[in-house]
C-alpha cells in the first residue's frame, strides 16, 4: 500500500532549516494496522500529513499503490484525499454550524453524491458508529467521544482504503479512549481498511501489531507481536 523511501521534510525556523523527518523509510501493507508513536515534536504529525497527501516531502518519495504522491499535481492529490484517504483529527474538526449528519455528508461533496443518496449514506455511517439517533445534533450538543465518532463516520462514509487518525484519543478520557480505539479496530477488521494511528499514548500504540517509533525526525519499527501484540 505505502512505500516511503528516504523521505525528508524540512521546515524553516527563522534562518535555520529543521528536519521534521530525516530520510525515513517505511512500508505499510494493505489492510495493516500501524501505529506511529513519539513525543510531541517528534515528527508524527508531519509524517501523517505526508501520508495523507496533505503535504509534499522535501526529498524522497511516497508511493501509494505504486503512485508517487510527491509527483502528483495538486488536483490529483485532492482526488486522492477525496476517494482513497479518510482522516480523523485530535480536535475532531467538525463544522460547528452543521449537524452530525451534515458533517458526515460534507465528505461526500467532492464525490458528487446526490443529496438523497448522501443523506442515506451519512445516516448509515452514523449508525455504524452508534450515533444514528444523534444525527440531527450539532457538535456542541455532543460529548467529546461522540464528536470523535462523528468524525470517524465522516472519514468512513466515502469508503476509503486508508484511515489516518492523528491523536484520535488525545482529548478523550480513558474509558472513551478505549471505546474509540475498539471502534477503529472493529471497522478496520470489517472493512479491510489500512489503519494508521499517530499517538503519544503507549497503550493505544501497542494495540497495533507494529509501531513506527518517531524520535527527532527519525523512525524505527517496533514489533508489538513479540510481547503479545495487544496493550496491557
Amino acid at each position: 500500500m505505502y512505500e516511503l523511501r528516504q523521505v525528508t521534510k524540512l521546515y524553516r525556523k527563522g534562518r535555520k532549516e529543521v528536519a521534521a523527518l530525516a530520510r525515513v523509510d517505511l512500508e505499510v501493507a494493505d489492510g495493516e494496522f500501524l501505529s506511529i508513536q513519539g513525543p510531541t515534536g517528534s515528527g508524527k504529525t508531519t509524517l501523517m500529513l505526508l501520508l495523507g497527501a496533505l503535504d509534499r516531502p522535501s526529498s524522497g518519495s511516497i508511493l501509494l499503490d505504486g503512485k508517487d504522491l510527491s509527483q502528483l499535481r495538486s488536483g490529483q492529490l485532492t482526488d486522492t484525499r477525496a476517494r482513497t484517504l479518510g482522516f480523523v483529527f485530535q480536535n475532531y474538526n467538525l463544522m460547528p454550524t452543521l449537524t452530525a449528519a451534515e458533517n458526515v455528508q460534507a465528505a461526500l461533496v467532492p464525490l458528487g453524491v446526490p443529496p438523497n443518496e448522501a443523506r442515506r449514506r451519512a445516516r448509515a455511517a452514523l449508525d455504524d458508529v452508534g450515533l444514528g439517533e444523534r444525527a440531527g445534533f450539532y457538535p456542541l450538543e455532543l460529548s467529546g467521544g461522540e464528536q470523535q465518532r462523528v468524525a470517524i463516520a465522516r472519514a468512513l462514509v466515502k469508503e476509503p482504503r486508508v484511515l489516518l487518525a492523528d491523536e484520535p484519543t488525545g482529548n478523550l478520557d480513558e474509558g472513551t479512549r478505549d471505546e474509540v480505539v475498539a471502534l477503529l479496530e472493529g471497522l478496520r477488521s470489517s472493512r479491510g481498511l489500512t489503519l494508521i494511528v499517530a499517538t503519544h499514548d503507549s497503550q493505544v500504540a501497542r494495540r497495533a501489531p507494529r509501531t513506527a517509533v518517531m524520535e527527532k525526525g527519525r523512525l524505527r519499527i517496533r514489533n508489538n507481536q513479540s510481547n503479545g501484540g495487544q496493550a496491557e
Binding site: 485532492t78 484525499r81 477525496a82 476517494r83 482522516f87 460534507a106 467532492p110 465522516r154
Partner: peptide
Amino acid sequence: REFGTLKALGWR
C-alpha cells in the same frame, strides 16, 4: 482549521 479540514476531506 475549518477550511483545512474541508481540503483534507477532498474539497477542491
